[in-house]
Design a protein around this nucleic acid. Sequence first.
DNA 1: CTGAAAGCGCTTACAG
DNA 2: CTGAAAGCGCTTACAG
Lengths: 347, 347
Amino acid sequence: MTTMSNRYTGSKPGRPTMKHVAALAGVGIKTVSRVMNNEPGVAEATRAQVLRAAEQLKYQLDVNAGNLRRSDRRTRTLGLVLPSVANQFSGEIHRAVEDAMAPRGIAVFASSVDDDPEREQPVVAALLQRRVDGLIVTPAAPDQSYLVSELEHELPVVFVDREPVGLAADCVTSDNREGAAAAAAHLIGHGHRRIAYLGDLSTIQTARERRRGFAEEAARAGITGQTFTVEELHDSRAAQEAATRLLTGSEPPTAIFAAQILVTLGVLRALKELGLQHRVALVGFDDFELADLLDPGVTVVAQHPEQIGRLAAERLLARLDGQRSRPERFVVPSTLIPRGSGEIPPA
Amino acid sequence: MTTMSNRYTGSKPGRPTMKHVAALAGVGIKTVSRVMNNEPGVAEATRAQVLRAAEQLKYQLDVNAGNLRRSDRRTRTLGLVLPSVANQFSGEIHRAVEDAMAPRGIAVFASSVDDDPEREQPVVAALLQRRVDGLIVTPAAPDQSYLVSELEHELPVVFVDREPVGLAADCVTSDNREGAAAAAAHLIGHGHRRIAYLGDLSTIQTARERRRGFAEEAARAGITGQTFTVEELHDSRAAQEAATRLLTGSEPPTAIFAAQILVTLGVLRALKELGLQHRVALVGFDDFELADLLDPGVTVVAQHPEQIGRLAAERLLARLDGQRSRPERFVVPSTLIPRGSGEIPPA
DNA sequence: CTGAAAGCGCTTACAG
DNA sequence: CTGAAAGCGCTTACAG
């Protein structure tokens, strides 16, 4: 009979198992298991011997195999569904979640959905097949009721940035309505009446909230301005074109509220191209690097993605720890940061 | 005997298994396995029956359990080690990797190491315990030889953005040396001789490469300027202070090369504060959103993280598909983009 | 303090 | 076309 060390089954040669470590150390596999999991009740000499064998074989515990038999059936894995891991806001949420999970040994699968309603469910299904212990999701589909059965099976699900539709679950968002209202109030307070609202796809819940907050505040000031409302702007080029059209029209607005980051960038390009950056006021929703370095500095309603991510992660951990109270809705206040562009008076 | 449907073992109640589906459909579990994995050779009627049962129980295949017995032992999982999932460059690499892996059903674990040499190895070890099928790593530690045994066990490892030390493995980087040399040549070509080099930690391999590319090009032009070299700048505040010191010194530089994105931001702040943004030339390494909107526009050496990520992912997939050729080193060319700041003549 | 037996939910390797 | 038995690498539940 050959030695064990060359008789592995898989196509990856040489990956040792507890059996190999046990054989080399001259103990049972249960003892190896105890040592590798830092369980008490192993003689010091035995422990040392096992560790030596493990070291020699470069043995690494297989957490997936362990999980299969473990009574809690936890994979120590989390699914995070985001618009895109390449965007700044998502990245900061991701990092906050990672930082909250790492101390518990929970690894994070992040998936990008690009706000495509069709992709949300397949992406979530793939995560469920991997038996993630929980889900943190930025909803993109019009309805999340497909997750009801998972919730019933006690899978913790927390929604971030946007509220879910069709099921009751924990949720952490920015104060979209209040933030947009604050932006409107700020511009109105500086004397503006002809304020344009440029916003994202109205299928996105936060976009509708911001629209509403802005409109309510405007109405409160006796302003109604359908002519200045443009929605369905999902990229900066579309926003730039829309802003250019408004600004070169017969009755241009004296101020613009850009309700999403890419819209803000598009408006900035339009203003610069038209040489109007010091003439037309601008407040953007969502902060960005360099906003202070532009001329004028860009006044924004800053969101706090790291707080949103952290809260969502804490919520999820509490659920994993058995908290069964009913779903809560957390709203993270945004912050208006005046930097110049929002304080330009009407022409 | 009670019905099966309420007799689960785990703490997550109700998660059905193939056994439950098989019982409900009145077939063996092997048949359920065939259907759930879309294997051929199942009668249409049987298949339909199984699908109906699976649907009714909301059954989802457990890919981890399957993997345990599967002959290839693949977890369809990848480990991605990055400086931080919150930074733009990392995020774009991450997205490119995700997009390359998704069609193959491979999910990505991303981990942030914050360029902390101490954190690299524990982070990698955690991924290995999860039996990832491969690793894409931005090295932060001074040495990656701890991965030699993994490479021997045929675990595919590809390094991104920085070259590994102590082992031969596939690697995809920017052309740091050439890019920095191009920046130097650009400034020299515009008449500058007193050019400051502001760079990141010299422990980081790419920082050393950029320093070298810059110095070589300067030497070629007969310029030696030790007094203008500041390194170990790892955040924008440090860079701002260093730039301010140089610019307010007795013999200020007429041009600055900022060899890292945070350094560029710090220099921009310093220039603006001193009112020198139209007097002192600046080229930055790494592009950023809004570089074109500043006044003047910021000339940069643009890297292409999405290409770097895609190449690394393709390399890894080729290895997974059995390619055994010797390790290759890919260098992705960067692009100098003149926008104004780099074309300011010396005072 | 230690280890043999059973079993987690699947796939493999067969046999019919 | 279908399914019973064995086994993947661990942990559980015991027994000694």
